[in-house]
Amino acid sequence: MSPDSKTSTKATAETDIEAVVHQLAALREDMSRLAETVSGIAGRRGSRMAADIAEGFDEAKHYAESKGRSAEAQLEESVAAHPFMTIGLAVGAGFLVGALSRR
């Protein structure tokens, strides 16, 4: 091999190494941007999911409140319509609780 070919081979190798270094730097930047993008997407999805869960809890709370009021109104109507039966059921429940607590 002549000295010129050695110099040329060395220069080509250095050029190739520089190209690889630049490509690795570009790859690092791309990976960094990709990580930021994925992080942003995950954050937005998490926020939306938390908002959906909070909305679901609010709906469940309102549903339970309305059903509770409805059940309370029905119970009051039933007690007002059948006061003696209500007293009899209360007495029966009291005897049952008393009998179970003696054991």
Rank of each mutant, 00 (worst) to 15 (best):
S2T: 14
S2F: 14
P3A: 09
D4R: 15
D4E: 09
D4Y: 11
S5K: 15
K6V: 11
K6C: 12
K6S: 13
S8N: 14
T9A: 14
T9W: 10
K10N: 08
A11Y: 06
A11P: 02
T12I: 14
T12Q: 15
A13G: 06
A13N: 09
E14D: 07
T15A: 06
D16R: 14
I17Y: 10
E18V: 06
A19N: 06
A19K: 10
V20A: 05
H22L: 10
H22C: 06
Q23C: 09
L24C: 10
A25C: 05
A26V: 07
A26Q: 08
R28N: 04
R28V: 02
E29N: 04
E29K: 01
E29I: 01
E29W: 01
D30I: 01
M31D: 03
L34V: 00
L34S: 00
L34I: 00
A35N: 00
T37R: 02
V38H: 11
S39A: 00
G40Q: 03
I41Y: 08
I41G: 04
A42W: 00
R45V: 02
S47R: 03
A50T: 06
D52E: 10
I53K: 12
I53F: 09
I53R: 11
A54N: 14
E55D: 08
E55N: 14
G56D: 03
D58F: 15
E59D: 12
E59N: 11
A60G: 09
K61L: 11
K61D: 10
H62N: 15
Y63G: 05
Y63R: 15
Y63H: 08
E65A: 15
S66C: 13
G68N: 12
R69K: 13
R69C: 10
S70M: 09
A73K: 08
Q74N: 07
E76G: 03
E76W: 01
E77F: 01
S78P: 00
S78L: 04
V79M: 07
V79P: 02
A80Q: 03
A80N: 05
A81V: 11
P83H: 02
P83V: 00
F84R: 04
F84N: 03
M85F: 01
G88T: 13
A90Y: 07
A90L: 13
V91F: 02
V91W: 03
G92C: 14
G92S: 15
G92T: 11
G92K: 15
A93W: 11
G94I: 05
V97Y: 06
V97E: 05
V97K: 11
G98L: 05
A99F: 09
R102L: 07
